[in-house]
Computed example of a mutant assay.
Amino acid sequence: MADNDEGPTAVASLLSAYAGRDAARHRLLWTLDARLARLVASTTEPMIGQIRLAWWSDALTDESGVKGRGEPLVDALREAGIAPPTGLSDWLDGWESLIGEPDLVGYAVGRGGGLFRSLAGEDDVPDWLIDAGAVWALWDLSGHVSDVATASQAVAMGRDRLLSGQPHWPRKWRPMRIAYTLACHDIMRGRPAPHGLTLRLYMRLVRTALMAR
Rank of each mutant, 00 (worst) to 15 (best):
L28R: 09
L28F: 05
L29V: 09
L29Y: 03
L29R: 08
W30I: 07
L32T: 09
L32A: 12
L36M: 04
R38E: 02
L39C: 04
L39Q: 06
S42V: 00
T43E: 03
T43K: 06
T44G: 01
E45T: 13
I48W: 05
Q50F: 13
I51M: 15
R52I: 08
A54Q: 15
W55H: 08
W56S: 00
W56Y: 12
D58H: 10
D58L: 10
A59T: 03
A59V: 00
L60G: 03
T61P: 05
T61S: 05
T61W: 01
E63Y: 01
E63Q: 15
S64C: 08
G65C: 06
V66E: 11
V66H: 10
K67T: 03
K67Q: 14
G68E: 02
G68F: 07
G68S: 05
R69H: 08
R69E: 15
R69A: 15
R69C: 04
G70L: 13
G70M: 11
E71Y: 02
E71K: 02
P72Q: 06
P72H: 10
D75M: 07
A76T: 11
A76G: 01
A80W: 00
A80G: 02
G81W: 12
I82E: 01
I82T: 08
A83R: 06
A83S: 12
A83K: 08
P84F: 06
P85E: 00
P85I: 02
L88M: 11
L88P: 13
D90K: 09
D90T: 09
L92M: 12
L92N: 04
D93I: 02
D93N: 13
G94I: 07
G94N: 09
W95N: 11
S97N: 12
I99Y: 05
E101P: 04
P102R: 07
D103Q: 00
L104Q: 07
L104D: 15
V105K: 13
V105W: 11
V105G: 08
G106Y: 02
G106Q: 09
A108L: 00
V109W: 05
G110R: 02
G110C: 00
G110N: 03
G110T: 01
R111Y: 08
G113M: 02
G114T: 03
G114Q: 01
R117E: 00
S118F: 05
S118G: 15
S118P: 08
G121L: 06
E122A: 15
D123P: 11
D124C: 10
V125K: 05
D127Q: 12
D127S: 13
W128K: 00
W128R: 01
L129K: 04
L129I: 09
L129H: 02
I130G: 00
D131P: 03
G133A: 04
G133K: 06
A134Q: 04
V135L: 11
V135H: 04
W136H: 15
D140L: 05
L141E: 09
S142E: 14
S142M: 13
H144T: 07
H144A: 07
S146W: 02
S146G: 12
V148I: 15
V148M: 09
V148D: 10
A149E: 12
A149T: 13
S152G: 11
S152F: 12
Q153G: 04
Q153Y: 02
A154Y: 12
A154H: 14
V155T: 08
V155S: 14
V155F: 03
A156Y: 09
M157Q: 13
M157T: 04
R159L: 15
R159K: 15
